[in-house]
């Protein structure tokens, strides 16, 4: 699993209040078929999965697939004992921010998590996907879909109602985040090329 046979290694972090289902959601995504490592000494749980990403070019034809090695990191509940430090967010390129549709407080805390992300993540506007989890418990729901959508729109992030129990929208949420990351990398690559050309051009003068 950890051989170097991939194009990109991408690290995602699952965040949100304790008990919203971060571990279960990641488990559902990797389906338990893949390596599930629990490193007791570092207090981080991470799972891995290989995916192939195909970007749609401007002509709508997808190019060669990029082999992605996804690492999905979990907080292992340490946020109950202490606030997460900048080091914890280090190297994470994308964030799955979860709340529990049956727990109003976990939804109210989404704003705090977003501001923590702005402080600790590698940049001020990192790529985030918001997940209202436990959509299977419809009869216990306390957060309306419209409320959550409204919040997500305000922050300009995609929103999905997921269920780690039955798998609804789980892959879609992770794939949407991957898509955002890959688009960001393409944009940055483009910028670098532009800068390189600019530097080359100015060197000629």
């Amino acid at each position: 699993m950890s051989d170097g046979d991939y194009d990109y290694l991408i690290k995602f972090l699952a965040l949100g209040d304790s008990g919203v289902g971060k571990t279960s959601l990641l488990y559902q995504y990797t389906d338990g078929k893949f390596n599930s490592k629990f490193i007791t000494t570092v207090g981080i749980d991470f799972r891995e999965k290989r995916v192939v990403y195909r970007a749609n070019g401007p002509d709508g034809i997808s190019g060669r697939g990029q082999r992605i090695h996804l690492q999905l990191w979990d907080t292992a509940g340490q946020e109950r004992f202490r606030s997460l430090t900048t080091a914890f967010f280090r190297d994470a390129m994308g964030f799955l921010l979860l709340f529990d549709l049956t727990n109003e407080q976990s939804f109210l805390n989404v704003r705090n998590w977003l501001s923590q992300l702005q402080t600790h993540a590698y940049c001020e506007n990192p790529d985030i996907v918001l997940c209202g989890n436990k959509s299977d418990l419809e009869d216990q729901r306390t957060v309306k879909e419209e409320e959550a959508k409204e919040l997500a729109e305000k922050y300009g992030i995609p929103y999905f109602e997921t269920s780690a129990a039955n798998g609804a929208n789980v892959s879609k949420a992770v794939e949407t985040l991957l898509d955002l990351i890959m688009k960001r990398m393409e944009r940055n690559l483009g910028k670098d090329k532009y800068q390189q050309n600019f530097i080359r051009a100015s060197a000629l003068h």
Binding site: G19, T40, A76, G77, Q78
Partner: peptide
């Protein structure tokens, strides 16, 4: 072990 979280040292 807090609630259903993983065991931590």
């Amino acid at each position: 072990k807090a609630d259903d979280d993983q065991v931590l040292g």
